[in-house]
């Protein structure tokens, strides 16, 4: 089932962020959302995640769906280890499986450390892996590759594409090169 926004409007105080916005996100495909700062990309994701409600219009196709997300901030449990953070959202995942995922993104040396001792780029990778480890129907990502160096970004994007093949993914980015590399549909706000 497709995800559809119908004539959605959202304002925060005086600031009108979205006005009569309509769009249909295709099922099982990746859509990159691009636009200038403040145009409502993060608000759009918040509406889809159910963290905000539209002032007007409706969001269809999200009811009862399992959601996963890479937030703008990492939102990790800082005192817990990377493995615990990943298994938090999917207890069915074994420790070995979580460690395997972390190793695939170059985090094999940091398995036992509390997340607060990791660098920004390492935390970002843990946040991405957490989103990929969850059982989901729709994955929503807000600038997921932000703060990664070029080499790591290439590795993570490759892994991300492999893991999300055939899944409904809505990804916000500022980087047109990133959107081009990821492929999929493009939505300009």
């Amino acid at each position: 089932m497709e995800i559809e926004l119908k004539q959605v409007s959202k304002a925060f105080g005086e600031k009108q962020v979205l006005t009569d916005f309509s769009h249909t996100f295709p099922q099982g495909e990746l859509t990159c959302v691009m636009g200038p700062s403040g145009c409502g990309k993060t608000t759009l994701l918040s509406l889809l995640l159910g963290l905000e409600t539209p002032d007007k219009g409706e969001v269809l196709g999200m009811e009862g769906r399992k959601k996963s997300a890479v937030f703008q901030e990492d939102r990790l449990c800082e005192n817990a280890g990377a493995v615990s953070n990943i298994r938090l959202v999917n207890p069915a995942l074994t420790k070995a499986q979580a460690e395997e995922m972390l190793s695939a993104l170059g985090l094999s040396d940091s398995l036992k450390q509390p997340v607060r001792t990791l660098s920004g780029g390492m935390k970002r990778r843990v946040a991405i892996l957490r989103a990929l480890a969850a059982e989901y129907d729709v994955l929503l990502c807000d600038e997921p590759f932000k703060g990664l160096d070029a080499e790591t970004k290439a590795l993570v994007m490759d892994y991300f594409l492999g893991k999300t093949k055939g899944k409904t993914v809505i990804l916000v980015t500022h980087d047109s090169a990133e959107a081009a590399a990821l492929g999929g549909h493009l939505l300009l706000l």
Binding site: L51, K66, K67, S68, A69, C77, A80, S84, L88, V89
Partner: peptide, 17 residues
Amino acid sequence: QMADVFRVPFPRRLRYL
């Protein structure tokens, strides 16, 4: 909010959050 999105059950929220 993160725990709500991922539907983290209460015992795990208690322990990790």
